[in-house]
């Protein structure tokens, strides 16, 4: 029974990691690749750690596994945000199928300042001005 649990967790974790790698190979541009790689990879690592903790069935292993899971949950989004932002700001081209980009107009590449005005959302304001 315990063996079955371990096998399920390890296999699903490995499957998520496999999908992450497949995604990073197949997807067309940087942000979509990050959707696939960072999150599916992190989820795979967390699932494998859960399997490891169940397999050892020890409090020491539980402490370490919990530390790893907590650490991955804390750091993955921060790293993804940093790389995604850096990639976007230096002008990595987006995929042709991208249907909308509200950030490009509001961002000043030289001064690195970012406005919050949103022309798409508040059409009334723009039209009032001549």
């Amino acid at each position: 029974m315990i063996d079955l649990f371990i096998a399920v967790f390890l296999l699903s974790g490995a499957a998520f990691m496999f999908l992450a790698a497949l995604g990073i190979l197949r997807l067309p541009d940087l942000p979509t690749r990050m959707h696939s790689s960072t999150k599916a990879g992190a989820l795979g690592a967390m699932l494998i750690m859960v399997g490891v903790v169940i397999g050892f069935a020890e409090w020491l292993a539980f402490a370490r596994g919990a530390a790893i899971v907590l650490f991955i949950m804390l750091t993955t989004p921060i790293a993804a945000h940093a790389i995604g932002r850096a990639g976007y700001m230096v002008g990595v081209p987006l995929w042709d199928g991208t249907i909308k980009d509200e950030l490009r107009d509001n961002y000043d590449l030289q001064s690195h300042s970012l406005q919050s005005e949103r022309r798409e959302q508040e059409p009334g304001k723009d039209r009032e001005e001549p």
């Binding site: 490995a14 990073i24 940087l30 990879g41 690592a45 991955i72 790293a79 790389i83 850096a86 990595v92």
Partner: peptide, 18 residues
């Protein structure tokens, strides 16, 4: 591009953890 390679490196490290 360079960010693509960094993303790949990050994925490699999390696979290594697994």
């Amino acid at each position: 591009s360079l960010p693509d390679r960094v993303v790949a490196l990050e994925l490699i490290s999390s696979i290594v953890v697994g």
